[in-house]
Computed example of a mutant assay.
Amino acid sequence: MSTWYLVLTKIRQEELARENLERQGFRAYLPMFRTSKLRRGKRVDAAELLFPRHVFVELDLETQDVSLIRSTYGAIGLVQYGAEPARLPTGFVETLIDLEHQQATSDPQDTEPKAEPASSIGSGLFPVTQAIFNAPDGKQRVLLLMEIISTLKH
């Protein structure tokens, strides 16, 4: 059975890692979001990584050779807790994909990240993924992701 896992990438090589994982036959996903940035005094739309240095990969640990991931250009390896790869909650990636599509079709002025206190995260996947999209920077989004992963039993 396939499950989504997290791959740590080399600095600024997320897209390279995703492309190379896909070339090797893995299903990979690099979450992005649209934001508005101030450049040279003008507001411009920009795509930003949701989780810097991380790519999601769908794996079946019983049938796929995960050792290939360590030798993939741009990738460092699977994020692990102890000896076990860090698996993502069922439906988490699909929820992220849905939110990414919703955000991509919304008004660019509504894409500014909004700080949201941890107590407002609530239960269930949608509030958690919404909190991730509202985190003000990549480092905080990665920390939220690690918190989600660490709550799962491996």
Rank of each mutant, 00 (worst) to 15 (best):
L144F: 05
P108Q: 02
K153L: 08
A28K: 03
L61D: 01
Q130E: 14
S106L: 08
I97R: 04
I121Y: 03
H154F: 11
I121F: 01
R141G: 02
R43Q: 11
G25L: 06
W4Y: 04
V79W: 14
F133N: 01
V7Q: 02
V55T: 06
R12Y: 13
A118S: 13
G25C: 12
Y29P: 01
P127G: 02
E94C: 01
E116I: 09
H154W: 10
Q102E: 06
E15P: 07
A86L: 15
T72K: 03
K37F: 10
R53P: 06
Q80E: 14
F92H: 07
A104E: 01
L88P: 05
E112Q: 11
D137W: 07
I149A: 12
D98G: 04
V128A: 11
Q140E: 06
A118C: 05
D98N: 06
R87D: 07
S119R: 12
R87E: 08
L61S: 05
K153G: 09
L49K: 13
R39L: 07
Y5E: 13
P52T: 04
D60W: 03
P117Y: 06
I132P: 00
F33I: 02
E15T: 14
R27C: 15
F133M: 04
D45C: 14
D107K: 06
F26L: 05
T9G: 04
R27N: 09
D98A: 08
R40K: 15
Q24V: 05
P113K: 01
S2A: 11
Y29M: 02
L50P: 00
I132K: 01
I149Q: 07
E112V: 09
L16C: 09
T35F: 04
G77W: 05
S106P: 08
F56A: 01
G124Q: 05
A75P: 03
A115F: 14
A135M: 07
G124E: 13
K37E: 14
L96M: 05
G82V: 03
Q109P: 03
Y81E: 13
E22D: 04
Y5P: 01
A135E: 11
P31A: 06
K10E: 10
Y81A: 11
P136H: 12
I132C: 00
Q130M: 04
Q102K: 00
L21A: 12
R141F: 13
R43L: 15
D110N: 05
R70T: 13
S119N: 13
I76S: 07
N134M: 00
Q64A: 10
A75N: 10
E147Y: 06
D60L: 07
T105M: 11
P31F: 03
L6D: 08
L16N: 09
G77H: 04
R23G: 07
T35V: 09
L125K: 03
Q130D: 00
R39Q: 08
R70L: 10
L145N: 00
T72S: 06
T3L: 14
